[in-house]
């Protein structure tokens, strides 16, 4: 297979490499660039641990080929940490810390980027919009409670008030019920 040259701006820095056409963007970031905040948690675009921004829009980088990102700009969680690489001035990462929106940390980079994308799309978030907006990002540790709070805080909302409104609302919650169950 012939390699293909890509030019991808990652966290404001121009990167270039000759890559296999099948190379996933997630692997390009992790292996070729050594940016390992972005994690891979599944094979089916289900978990969202690999979420990054592609030209400002959140995408799952395990389902984007590196060649598809050619000439585009990618932002990973490392890109939110400032020049020093260790700044928590970003409102989303700061809110995740303040609200204890992470435990094992594996879903966190994807969650942070998904929340960043969500707020860019819809600055006027409420709890329901956050929950539905994060439907493609799985977390096993937090039960989402504090991730939702962190997203609300990052969007400038009062999480206590928003949770109270949602708790009292009659709005239907989505419950797809994946499992068919074995037998009856």
């Amino acid at each position: 297979m012939t390699n293909v040259k890509v030019d991808i701006t990652v966290n404001g820095r121009t990167t270039t490499d000759d890559v296999e056409p099948r190379l996933l963007l997630a692997h390009y970031l992790r292996e070729n660039l050594g940016l390992k905040a972005t994690n891979i948690g599944c094979d089916t675009t289900s978990c969202g641990a690999c979420t990054v921004l592609l030209d400002g829009e959140s995408v799952k980088s395990c389902t984007v080929l590196a060649v598809q990102a050619d000439q585009l700009a990618v932002t990973t969680m490392e890109g939110l940490a400032g020049e020093s690489g260790d700044s928590l001035d970003n409102p989303v990462t700061a809110a995740f810390r303040a609200e204890h929106g992470l435990q094992c940390g594996f879903c966190t980079p994807g969650m942070v980027m998904a929340v960043t994308g969500l707020i860019a799309e819809n600055p006027d978030l409420d709890e329901r919009a956050v929950r539905e907006g994060l439907e493609g990002n799985l977390c096993r540790c937090t039960g989402y409670h504090n991730i939702v709070r962190a997203a609300l805080v990052a969007a400038g909302k009062d999480p206590d008030a928003e949770q109270e409104i949602e708790a009292e609302s009659d709005a239907a919650r989505t419950a797809p019920g994946f499992s068919a169950g074995s037998g009856s």
């Binding site: 089916t44 978990c47 539905e132 439907e135 493609g136 990002n137 039960g143 708790a167 499992s179």
Partner: peptide, 14 residues
């Protein structure tokens, strides 16, 4: 994870 019923934020309340 496309087949297993791992819940997302959308299926859970606070």
């Amino acid at each position: 994870f496309a087949d297993y019923g791992f819940p997302s934020a959308a299926e859970l309340p606070s």
